[in-house]
Design a protein around this nucleic acid. Structure first.
Length: 599
RNA sequence: GCCCUCAUAGUUCAACGGAUAGAAUAGCAGUUUCCUAAACUGUAGAUACAAGUUCGAUUCUUGUUGGGGGUACCA
């Protein structure tokens, strides 16, 4: 069935041609949803046509409105307020629309086929020297949701992770462990491996600072002290040993990384994210080096006297960018070039998307240009899904100052709060512990995910731990609750012996709240598309909240459905509720949020 | 210095250049012989400042002020 907003657009085009003899393109025809406070379903803005009609906005709108009623049987009436033509569709249209979609659980989604666009999306990208924190949570939730939304828009999506498992920062925690741990493992102290390793990274920094302070006290200037501190020198040596493949160092590196991976796996599982392929920087940086050295030989890059390899981007309005250190070791950019190339060879993607914070906007601008200069045409299809920082009410998170919000802690606290809240309300009595815990988990993660994803991805956001745990108002649990309520009603209907809720013959005039719900249901398809185009899960969040709110209003305004004597009407309303629940479930799924059946 | 970004109720967030700038929360006032009150209803409260473009500007342009980020042989 053709989308009615498109049909109206085409009709308006024809009408303008007939009335005023002008050809207007689709972009000039602004059809929007009628705002709540006015009568109507769709609104046409007529101001752009005044120069054709040479009449007042009111007269122009009336002329077009008359013609629409005449030309389109779906259009029942219209009203004009200022330059706005509000069009009301007939009950018959809405009932037909609902009949089309009520049993289609995939309404709003496009099919993924063999010929679909292939998108590789990278997200998460952790370092193996510390556990995941709140910033990673935003990244992971966004990455997962973007992937889901891309899929819903008919793209073939491949989710990849790039683990930053090498570099001097990794050596720092290795060194501290070697010096301080006395051979202890995470098992020995019953800790999650990533937290265990992270503690040694912190320990390194503490000792390092002490050493700097000592040197400064002995008269060295600070800059020199930073370079000359014993542990820093040892860490650098360790990196060189690592690069040259010294067995002892490699072994330690593998051991500690494996601890971290076990910890990450747990966190990823808890968050409900996963990957189709994992890249390791340790496996891509050599390719990056190779490609750069080759390009240098071909004269595409430049070299300084000390051996530094760089690219001059001043013509692109950027600076000179170093691609290899003077000692020949790799940088972040070096490995990212390697990874990008490897990824193209692996997947021959149509698009390669990176979910990475906006602090790296410059990095990705450079990456794209460098790859193009090196002759990789597909670099044009690299996109950076840039998102804003997460700040705490009292400022930015700083790992060194201990103001980070740990990912595992946060999730655990949310679950604990969900449990308290539920006990307080006396819900879930008579459930087994296992069932209850599963529900708490869904609610807690629903709250967290919704809280983070409802904010426009590209904007910085403030994370207030207290408010994020809220389960009322514009929150995940509010939406989940609406779903649960509908499930409860549907199962009660079944208990009453009401079967085949999609089979009815509703001849009643539609109520305002029913029309409002139908409009929301209609919108879902456009919302999914918009979220995809804008690369923004918040579009979904805003929509599903409004839908849930609208349903709750409907639920209160309409007399109890299960007591409705007109069985056709009752079934229609049950079917409408059921459809609402399915859309809630599908929309939340696009955000990685699960729905409980009871709560 | 240069580049990029952001600024909306007390607070956290919305608003393809369109109508009277929406929600949530905190505040105040209500709703349960009725399908889950984690709900619903009412009330009060905001576009940093100054110009410009436009029929129309929170949205676009310029300037001012104030945040954030980048400009590393860190990632």
């Amino acid at each position: 069935m053709q989308r009615i907003n498109i049909k109206i657009t085409e009709a308006v085009q024809k009408i303008i041609k007939e009335l005023y003899g002008e050809n207007v393109n689709e972009e000039q025809i602004q059809i929007q949803k009628t705002r709540k406070e006015f009568d109507g379903d769709f609104t046409l803005v007529v101001f752009p046509f005044l120069r054709f009609s040479k009449k007042s906005p009111e007269i122009t709108a009336n002329e077009i409105g008359d013609a629409l009623v005449k030309n389109m049987q779906e259009v029942e009436s219209y009203n004009v307020i200022k330059g706005f033509l509000n069009v009301s569709l007939s009950d018959e249209y809405w009932k037909n629309f609902f009949n089309e979609v009520k049993s289609n659980d995939n309404y709003g989604f496009k099919e993924v086929t063999e010929n679909s666009n292939k998108i590789v999306i990278e997200y998460s990208s952790p370092n193996t020297n510390k556990p995941l924190h709140l910033g990673h949570i935003r990244n992971n939730l966004l990455g997962w949701s973007e992937a889901k939304i891309m899929e819903a828009n008919g793209n073939k999506v491949i989710k990849v992770n790039l683990v930053n498992d090498r570099g001097v920062h990794i050596c720092k925690s290795m060194l501290a462990w070697k010096e301080l741990a006395g051979g202890k493992t995470p098992e020995d102290v019953k800790m999650k491996g990533d937290h265990f390793v992270g503690d040694y990274y912190v320990a390194f920094d503490k000792e390092y600072k002490k050493q700097i302070a000592e040197l400064v006290a002995n008269g060295m200037d600070e800059k020199e002290a930073k370079n000359e501190a014993k542990w820093m020198k040892q860490a650098r040596t360790m990196l060189q040993e690592w690069e040259s493949g010294k067995p002892e160092v490699r072994k330690l590196w593998e051991k500690m990384n494996s601890w971290v991976y076990a910890g990450f796996d747990e966190t990823y599982k808890k968050l409900g994210v996963s990957f189709d392929k994992i890249y390791y920087e340790s496996q891509t940086y050599l390719l990056g080096k190779e490609v750069i050295l080759k390009a240098l030989k071909e004269g595409k890059l430049q070299q300084k006297e000390d051996g530094t390899v760089f690219i001059d981007l001043t013509k692109d309005g950027l600076d000179e960018k170093v691609l290899l250190r003077s000692d020949g070791t790799a940088l972040y950019m070096t490995q990212d070039i390697g990874t990008a190339i490897l990824r193209y060879e692996d997947f021959k993607f149509d698009e390669s998307a990176y979910v990475v914070g906006n602090e790296q906007d410059y990095h990705f601008k450079v990456l794209k240009i460098v790859l193009k200069r090196l002759g990789y045409d597909w670099a044009e299809n690299i996109s950076h899904i840039s998102y804003g920082m997460v700040e705490l009410p009292d400022g930015k998170m700083k790992s060194r100052e201990g103001t980070v919000v740990d990912a595992d802690d946060l999730v655990d606290e949310m679950i604990e709060t969900a449990k308290e809240k539920s006990d307080e309300l006396g819900k879930l009595e008579g459930f087994s512990e296992e069932e209850k815990n599963e529900i708490f988990r869904k609610i807690a993660l629903g709250a967290l995910k919704y809280f983070i994803l409802k904010v426009d991805a590209k904007k910085n956001m403030t994370f207030n731990p207290k408010e994020s745990i809220d389960f009322n108002g514009n929150t995940g649990p509010f939406v989940q609750y609406t779903y649960v309520r509908i499930q409860s009603m549907l199962s009660k209907a079944k208990d009453l012996g009401i079967e085949n809720i999609h089979e009815y013959n509703n001849s009643e005039k539609l109520e305002q709240s029913e029309l409002a719900l139908l409009n929301f249901i209609y919108d879902f398809e456009d919302v999914v598309e918009e979220a995809g185009k804008r690369r923004n899960p918040s579009v979904i969040a805003n929509y599903v909240f409004d839908l849930a709110k609208e349903f709750n209003r409907f639920y209160h305004e309409i007399p109890p459905i299960l007591k409705e004597e007109n069985k056709d009407l009752m079934k229609f309303r049950l079917s409408l509720s059921n459809k609402t629940a399915i859309i809630i479930k599908n929309a939340l799924d696009l955000m990685g949020i699960e729905v409980p059946e009871r709560m």
